[in-house]
């Protein structure tokens, strides 16, 4: 009488065990996938087409408080780069001065597209958005051209510095050709500090 019931219990227990195993396996697979993608995204990236040697005229754009900017700029100056004043010597921030040419980000709002318009302006509005992207890039290119011609800047260097477990990155543009000549993603290490990251980027730029 008891044998089939015991068999059924055993089957149920087996199914529960299997379910648990399946769940654990699924969670492990998801964790593995997340970890793999996260690691892949934090991999270091480096490409250098030409050296940006000490002595070059450079503009450095870095989005951080002024005191940290000073540390970064001082590092470049100590290595003999000729750092042109761009967002370096200002008593005000770039945000206060520049509008569309501020090298920051695109942000625009327009009253078009409101529901109370007589006709559907969505398509025209979308087209206007697309044109604004092209215009924005074109105006930046013109500004970079002016930077080179009027202020004798050769390289524009962009940096973003991040803490441990995150990625610091940099890019350099040769304003003579408008070409990207150096890119680097540097996974910040535990023992890194502000100065060691900047030193790393300067060495990388100079091809050392």
């Amino acid at each position: 009488m008891c044998a089939p019931r015991a068999g059924a219990n055993f089957m149920d227990r087996g199914a529960i065990m299997l379910n648990r195993r399946a769940r654990i396996l699924t969670i492990c697979a998801l964790a593995l996938l997340t970890a793999a993608v996260a690691c892949a995204q934090k991999k270091s990236v480096k490409f250098s087409k030409q050296k940006v040697a000490p002595g070059s005229n450079v503009v450095i754009i870095i989005d951080c408080p002024t005191n940290i900017q000073n540390v970064v700029l001082a590092k470049f100056m100590a290595k003999d780069y000729r750092v042109k004043a761009f967002n370096a010597s200002d008593l005000y921030t770039m945000k206060d001065v520049f509008d569309i040419r501020d090298f920051k980000k695109l942000a625009r709002k327009s009253p078009l597209g409101k529901d109370d318009l007589l006709i559907n302006a969505q398509k025209a509005h979308d087209n206007l958005y697309k044109l604004s992207i092209y215009n924005y890039e074109m105006q930046k290119a013109e500004t970079l051209g002016e930077m080179k011609d009027k202020h004798n800047v050769r390289y524009l260097i962009l940096l973003e510095l991040n803490d441990w477990e995150r990625v610091s990155w940099g890019r350099a543009i040769d304003l003579a050709s408008y070409e990207l000549v150096w890119v680097e993603n540097y996974p910040t290490r535990y023992r890194d500090n502000l100065e060691s990251i900047v030193d790393h980027f300067i060495d990388s730029l100079a091809g050392m």
Partner: peptide, 15 residues
């Protein structure tokens, strides 16, 4: 050769 359209942005272009 990749030209400097967009790559002189610190912030994202995505709106």
């Amino acid at each position: 050769p990749v030209l400097c359209a967009q790559n002189n942005d610190i912030g994202e272009i995505d709106d």
